[in-house]
Design a protein around this nucleic acid. Sequence first.
DNA 1: TGCCAGGCCGGGT
DNA 2: ACCCGGCATGGC
Length: 215
Amino acid sequence: MRTNRRIHKIYTLLYKSFGPQHWWPGDTPFEIMVGAILTQNTNWRNVTRAIDNIKKAELLEPKKLLKNRKRIPRLIKPSGFYRLKAKRLVAFLEYYVHNYNSNISNLRAKSTKRLRSELLAISGIGNETADSILLYALSRPVFVTDVYTRRVFSRHNIFAYNLPYDDIRHIFEMKVPRDVQLYNEYHALLVKVGKEHCKKNEPLCTACPLGDITL
DNA sequence: TGCCAGGCCGGGT
DNA sequence: ACCCGGCATGGC
């Protein structure tokens, strides 16, 4: 079967098995951006604790958070790497407040290409974080790759685990219709199946909805 | 108890 | 162009 058919079939199977995932969990674009940084190599549950702390302090607003930057490390402590992530969050806040007056409309006026390069220029924002912000906070049709994406697709021989990030992105953006909702759901479903059936150091999983079919 | 979690950076080869 | 150590908390 051709690769684009297999990629489509995987999506169909995942959607039938798990249903809509309702990503990104977060009430506002800004909350999504903050979550995208805090979830780097971290369990989402710990991120929700950190975001709850910011909410309780009534600081989940770019300018307020930037003014209270000294409080950030303690607030986000549950999300791990908290000194490092506080710096990364501040770097992003400075970019967003100083260059865009922390106004989402000003971000939305820019092209996806431009925004990606600006986000990647911020220390602490790499490929996955930048693209998560583009897809889930700004509704741009960008395919997000994470460790689960690599695991699931490499185990089904779609591509090699270590294929460079942009190569994977280009494959999907060529072979999958550039529809924001489709990209939203596909990435969320890959995380879902990855967590449940495609764990690290467990190569085979017979209970996986993708496990016993000819793709 | 050790391993894992929705990465990224900087330095070394 | 890769490869690696560091970063840190909470769940299982």
